[in-house]
Amino acid sequence: MNPIPANKLLWEEHLPGGNHWSGRLRRGTALRLTDLQGGANVSALFFNAEQPLERYNMPDTLKSQHTAFLTAGYVCQSDMGRVLCSITADSLGWHDTWCGVSDAAMVLAQYGEKRYQQHRNAMHRNGRDNLLIELAKWGLRARDLVPSVNFFSKVVPDAEGALTHLPGHSVKGSYVDLRFEMDTLVVLSSAPHPLDANPVYAPADVQLSAYRADAVAADDACRTQCAQNGRAFTNTERYVASTGVAA
């Protein structure tokens, strides 16, 4: 892992396993997610911070980049053909885009019931409720719950297309860096992946580290990954210029 220079670091926060977080990340800022224990899963949603009706679009992101997963060199595109964030560094090479999040019924069936009244912060949480709690803080609701990116998780298909979660994909210290190309509302859940077959509820802790990113060069790997990415960056830059958001 390349360390973040001290003069670029803005803040750090610890996200316990099974919990949730949200915040605004400004254009020109990067966020590093680090798996602190191994086996983490971070379900992420991205919205235009100024106009949250514009948000991460999984189908457009995948088809425009001719991929089924995300890793360094790829971007998360909005439904307006703009770049919300770019993946500038990644120690794993594969992050799930298909499977969405767990819900209360799934967690109850797999892990049993542990309510806050009896277990406090050791309660069993699920991805859907985690994301809804954070969305509500920004005036958003269930209709805004779109397909997420599941960072640190990998799923593999069998010959018939059935998907299986790959255990051990993310080890302690695995990380991914996201560079934000527009002011973005980021919503995260660290609850287990919906296909995680572990019978024990043991979501891993994650470190969030925000830092000032370098300017996007003309030959930036994310910008030049494919022609559609180049157009998406141009669309983003024109939007930023038209809205007066600082570059």
Rank of each mutant, 00 (worst) to 15 (best):
L108D: 15
G127A: 12
D90N: 13
G23I: 00
L185M: 04
L84V: 04
G230T: 08
N130S: 08
S78P: 01
I133Y: 03
A105N: 13
Q225S: 11
T34H: 07
A142T: 14
H20G: 05
M80W: 08
Q51D: 14
C226G: 05
R179Q: 12
A136G: 15
V107L: 09
R179V: 13
D90K: 04
P147L: 07
A213C: 07
S153R: 03
G230F: 04
A246N: 04
N198W: 05
H124P: 06
S190E: 03
V42F: 08
R238T: 01
S174R: 05
N7K: 08
G17S: 10
Q37F: 06
R24L: 05
E113V: 06
G139V: 10
A6G: 05
T243Q: 04
A217D: 10
P194W: 03
H119T: 12
R24S: 01
V107H: 02
I4D: 01
E113W: 10
Q117Y: 11
L195A: 02
L135G: 04
K63I: 08
G28H: 06
D177N: 06
V245E: 15
V206S: 07
V149G: 02
A122T: 06
G28C: 10
F47T: 00
T234W: 05
P203Y: 11
Q37D: 13
W11G: 08
N229C: 12
Q118R: 11
Q117W: 05
N48Q: 06
P157D: 12
F46Y: 02
Q37R: 15
R231W: 05
P5G: 05
V186A: 04
P59W: 10
L31Q: 01
L163C: 06
A142D: 14
L135W: 05
D90A: 07
A159M: 15
N48C: 14
A136C: 09
F47E: 01
K63M: 10
N229M: 06
S174T: 07
G81F: 04
H193W: 11
Q228N: 12
P59E: 08
E134S: 09
G127K: 09
T61P: 00
A44M: 14
N130W: 01
V206P: 03
G168D: 13
A204C: 13
V216M: 12
Y56I: 11
A49G: 12
Q51W: 06
F69N: 09
